[in-house]
Design a protein around this nucleic acid. Sequence first.
DNA 1: GAGCGCATGAGAACCATTGTCAACTCACCG
DNA 2: CGGTGAGTTGACAATGGTTCTCATGCGCTC
Lengths: 131, 131
Amino acid sequence: MARTTRQRAAVAAVFDTLEGFHSAQEVHARLRTSGDGVGLSTVYRAVQALADDGELDSIRTDSGEALYRRCSTQHHHHLVCRTCGRTVEVAGPTVEAWADRIAGEHGFADISHTLEIVGTCADCRAAAAAS
Amino acid sequence: MARTTRQRAAVAAVFDTLEGFHSAQEVHARLRTSGDGVGLSTVYRAVQALADDGELDSIRTDSGEALYRRCSTQHHHHLVCRTCGRTVEVAGPTVEAWADRIAGEHGFADISHTLEIVGTCADCRAAAAAS
DNA sequence: GAGCGCATGAGAACCATTGTCAACTCACCG
DNA sequence: CGGTGAGTTGACAATGGTTCTCATGCGCTC
């Protein structure tokens, strides 16, 4: 199993050249545009296979879309403004350590986690106050 | 806007009697069973309106389903086994404090956050090792 | 009580994702 | 190097949660 085919390599290559999170749909569109035709089903399968192998991390958007990113990129979390959508990336060594500890206490291993903080940024609070 | 109708009250009532996270579909089924017929569209609208008003928190399942819960219930996070799906609820005062601090540093207020820890539980590791 | 609008709900539309299945292709064997 | 078979592919259909549409209904205000 896990044969190395042109399509699978193409999908993996996309994540090598791209930073951050990307959807399966986006990968598919990107491959189509770049001339490497890869079927949509295949992109989904490849992406899931990569995620199973631990080469990709996955999260879900608020709209229910699945996003993937190369695992090795340094870990960070998102601080999102609920009004204007502005996003700040924050590192959280405290949280990493806490998650590992909690997971260990419950007998869990091979931990990964996702954390999103949602709030209202200073600008939007000012704008709201002015109205 | 935000009129007080029977349907909206019914949806809100469901979350008063239920602990934890529940999907819109589940709320709809529950209302249907209990005799209060409320349209699916209306459940979605009510749930979103409640979320907008800050009365409900929402997260997404791995399968893309949206889950909601009453905000006031004590805050906790989920530790999920990626193999068998077993879920442990964990409290995280450390994380709460950290999130508040980080958000404050970036000028964000009215913070809420979601945190999911995914790993492999002891049982599933043992099962995997046996195979 | 009358009238204005927002709210409702049945069904259709939407869209990301998953399933299907015949054709294909890679890896290995001889 | 050609054959062989099992894993892969991809066009298309199906699924399922969510959103949209629009005619009808009901809460509110006057």
